[in-house]
Amino acid sequence: MNIYVINGPNINLLGTREPEIYGKETLADIAIDCQEKASIDGHVVKFMQSNYEGEIVEWIQDAIIQKVDAIVINAAAYTHTSIAIHDALKSYSGYKVELHISNPHLRESFRHVSFVSSAVDAVVAGLGADGYSHAIDLLPELPIQSN
């Protein structure tokens, strides 16, 4: 199974940015954890992060072209603003999971609206940084068609 894990703005600051909310693990730690776990069963995880909305849109389009089986997307702040990411996700027919480290619905009201949620199959939030590896562990178990 091929999986893209796409991360949005400020997630490169993980480990130093408000660690009381986001934890002490860095994005590199999380990426290694996910890739090592996935590789045990022969799955491939490509882990990406960008602070630019358009680059995230292009990665989703790349997932369409490459026929990637699943996308895990943490669009971070773009979650609450980006119709472009919503549209790109709607064009991708593989399995889609929206992921957040914290639970946006418990935070400021401007984080309660997500343009991603209605374009994905599932939403996972508030499980901490471990949410990534738990999601990667689960994806191959799901009854999803290869893309």
């Binding site: 914290s102 619905h105 418990l106 599932a122 996972v124 471990d130 738990h134 689960l138």
Partner: peptide
């Protein structure tokens, strides 16, 4: 979604019965 203290509540939606499995994995960790 339900509400609660800011750091106290996880949320999983759309994974069917596998959502429970994911929750159990997370809780165990």
């Amino acid at each position: 979604p339900l509400q609660g203290a800011e750091s106290g509540l996880g949320f999983i939606s759309g994974l069917g019965k596998y959502g429970y499995v994911l929750a159990i994995q997370s809780i165990n960790k």
